[in-house]
Amino acid sequence: MVAIYEFVRGPLALISFAVFFVGCIYRIIWYVKGLDWRLDRVAYSTQRSLGIKGAIRSLFHWLLPLNRTTVNHPIFMGATYLFHLCLIIAPLFLVAHVVLIEESWNISWITIPDPIPDYMAMVVIAVGVFFLLRRLTNPDVKIITDGSDYLVLAIAVAPFITGILAYHQIFDNQLMTILHILAGEIMLIAIPFTKLCHFVLFFCSRIQLGMDYGIKRGGAHGRGIAW
């Protein structure tokens, strides 16, 4: 088992980070190269300043809960903002993660005290359960749900479930820690290949639509439209 630990902690970690970073960068390049001012009917390059304004506007209104969808669906949107906030902050600033990364690659950054990511992980799991129940019960969501949605949700939540079990030393700690690391690595590797690629493509899509509205659909008129 120690050998498995060594493998997931060492080479597999390196591989999954590499796949994650290369994959994400590839996705961005693929996206930008696939933009076509004639097919998309947006003058990306000739109306750059309107485009940038529109893009910033779009990101601002959607990275923050300043949009009509949040007003119309406060519970779901509140849950999803919380879910994503916790999902990103907790692993990124967890002491244990930063320590391991420092020991491997000699880079480190600020951390937050353990109880905070602990609660955050619980939030991720709770909202994950809420997403799951919603998928199973809401007819509008059910009709558009396919197997990949469950898979992706499982991939996203698994590191948090195992993380909590490992942190609170429930069940065999070595096994739990290995599973936790593995779950995290599966998530990293899955990001470029599944629809978790929205991790980067969300930004691409929002920027594109922002530019579309900024350049073509009225960005030059009146107060402009926010997305």
């Binding site: 120690v2 050998a3 630990y5 060594e6 244990a96 490992a166 942190y167 030393q169 700690n173 070595q174 739990m176 820690t177 290995i178």
Partner: peptide, 13 residues
């Protein structure tokens, strides 16, 4: 511990 394949290696151990 890793070298000797003995003793705890994970955080919680």
């Amino acid at each position: 511990h890793l070298k000797e394949n003995k003793g705890p290696v994970t955080c919680g151990e």
